[in-house]
């Protein structure tokens, strides 16, 4: 008999407590720094080492580069097929210059599959958006750019 009353006591004790529901989509969640959303890419830092394409478990990265006037490799095309990307972030782990990173864009749904094939411009745009949203988290580009440039 008393089992019911104890249970009822628990229910009533919940009444004055604060609600934990997040009213999405009116309120968006705040993601931590390490959150793995769709990628963001900084073309100036990429050295076309191809490590990200090799480590990807689903082979969704394809890239190509060419040598510029200083005989250094510069990236020309960089595509991520986010249709098959599993957001494991192994590519960000192996990148030696941190050119490819994860952002916190998580709303990736699209009506057309072609929109999911992200090219370098979209990814760089994503990087600019990310820096705009999180000015305190952007990597100090100037020093790294200098080192990669010389």
């Amino acid at each position: 008999m008393f089992g019911f009353l104890k249970g009822l006591g628990v229910t009533i004790s919940q009444l004055p407590k604060k609600k934990v529901t997040l009213m999405y989509p009116d309120e968006k969640p705040e993601w931590p720094e390490r959150f793995r959303g769709v990628h963001r890419f900084i073309p100036e830092l990429c050295t076309v080492c191809n490590q990200c394409a090799r480590i990807c478990p689903t082979s969704c990265i394809s890239l190509s580069g060419a040598r510029d006037e200083n005989r250094k490799l510069r990236i020309e095309t960089y595509d991520i097929n986010s249709d098959i990307c599993i957001l494991c972030s192994l590519c960000t782990e192996v990148c030696p210059t941190e050119a490819i990173l994860m952002s916190d864009t998580f709303e990736n749904a699209s009506y057309v599959r072609d929109d999911l094939y992200l090219d370098m411009h979209w990814l760089y745009n994503n990087e600019l958006e990310y820096e705009r949203r999180h000015p305190d988290r952007a990597i100090p580009e100037t020093d790294v750019q200098k080192k990669a440039g010389d």
Partner: peptide, 8 residues
């Protein structure tokens, strides 16, 4: 940070 191609 090393930035040569890793393959060799």
């Amino acid at each position: 940070m090393s930035d040569e191609p890793r393959k060799p």
